[in-house]
Design a binder for these strands. Structure first.
Length: 360
DNA sequence: CGGGTAGGTAAGGGTAATGTATTACA
DNA sequence: GTGTAATACATTACCCTTACCTACCC
């Protein structure tokens, strides 16, 4: 495929066009990342991106005199197969680093008529169980019977219905914690990254007593920390707040929804999970009076002053003594994350240069 | 016909919002 | 000791990506 061009990486606009027009799956994307340095974005849509998408749709409608109903027909065509490639490409162009598939999925989710209906009622669970019993895991059909989005039915089923009789709630016993630690650490052996942990499997190995979500949260937010410190409890301190504020400051994002929390911890500071760190940020933010009406940079201005100095007495935050991966020490050649400048932002950028991996 | 692909569903993997129990501390 | 704010621990709705399937096109 046309490696012709020059020695320079393909132009950005060329990539933007590809992303907005070609329906590429994961493999295809990975291939382009490797072969011609394609850069694209993954992860949650930031507030800014959501706004851009909405404006693009609004614009699409007004320039063509389309009604709300027409728009709905485009997003969810009734039976006829009128593919509206123009629509999806145009909307995708509003968020340059996103592949068309991601935008397509996002918009269909966000505008689904049955979206967001809050807590599940017992009657709904009953309908769900009934539907799955008769139809099997055909979620689109099940959704019709239950009155919830297919994906929500699937989630409810796998997270709360399966093994429901065995499910245990409340605080974890020491035995359970030990069991989970054993399972997770065993699974990690021979794996390269902790992303190789399959929480559905873990839940099964716990004999269904705890759901995949319970297992995952318990491990990432609590047990992994204890494991790293050999049982010592590490509490969040001012020095941690200091580090966090300055890390976020260094990102230079326009809005905190653009922060990729997974990228915050590093080899020196990694006791707290991305989830925990994100929550700490929220707490700090909320402690500022009137934060609701402030922009991200205004909030940063205040926090920067508040945490201007590293508390001198503070012991440096403990660093994991157990390297993330078995006994091999991870060198961490200093990140060279392809932080493609500030223009990008939010979620994770996927680019050439594979960071990782070591392997053997 | 046969490979390629657009457009859809299912499965896999994860986070955000919120509630509740503990702990720190004035 | 007491009230309250911060933090730890739980719960679950909600979200995004990848795998897979199928009708359709050249």
């Amino acid at each position: 495929m046309a490696p012709s061009s020059s020695s320079e990486p393909a132009s950005h606009s060329g990539h933007a066009h590809l992303l907005a027009n070609k329906w590429m799956g994961a493999n295809k994307l990975a291939e382009l990342v490797a072969s011609e340095g394609l850069v694209y974005k993954k992860g949650k849509f930031s507030a800014i991106e959501i706004k851009q998408v909405n404006e693009a749709m609004q614009n699409y409608c007004t320039t063509r005199g389309l009604s709300e109903e027409d728009l709905n027909q485009i997003i969810f065509p009734s039976d006829e197969k009128k593919k509206d490639a123009v629509f999806w490409s145009e909307i995708t162009s509003a968020v340059p680093l996103r592949p068309i598939v991601a935008v397509y999925q996002y918009v269909r989710r966000a505008h689904h008529p049955m979206k967001q209906q809050g807590k599940w009622q017992p009657e709904e669970d009953a309908k769900l169980i009934q539907a799955v019993t008769s139809l099997g895991q055909q979620w689109e059909k099940v959704a019709q019977l239950v009155g919830r989005m297919a994906t929500d039915c699937r989630d409810r089923y796998r997270n709360h219905i399966v093994d429901r009789e065995k499910r245990v709630n409340g605080a974890w016993s020491t035995a359970e914690e030990e069991e989970l630690t054993r399972i997770v650490t065993t699974m990690q052996q021979g794996k390269n990254l902790d992303t190789d942990i399959f929480w559905g499997k873990v839940s099964e190995m716990m004999d269904g007593k705890r759901s995949r979500q319970q297992c995952r949260i318990k491990w990432t937010d609590s047990l992994s920390k204890k494991f790293k410190t050999d049982g010592a409890t590490a509490r969040w301190g001012t020095h941690d707040a200091f580090i966090l504020v300055h890390k976020i400051d260094a990102l230079g994002v326009r809005d905190d929804t653009e922060i990729d929390w997974k990228s915050i911890p590093d080899s020196q500071w990694n006791l707290f999970s991305a989830h925990t760190v994100q929550r700490r940020w929220l707490t700090m933010k909320k402690s500022i009076k009137g934060f609701e009406d402030m922009t991200h940079s205004e909030i940063m201005d205040i926090l920067r002053v508040k945490y201007a100095e590293m508390p001198s007495y503070a012991k440096v935050s403990k660093v994991a003594k157990v390297p993330a991966r078995s006994d091999e020490y991870i060198e961490d050649s200093d990140n060279d994350e392809p932080q493609a400048g500030s223009s990008t932002g939010p979620g994770t950028l996927v680019a050439e240069g594979g960071p990782d991996d070591d392997s053997e």
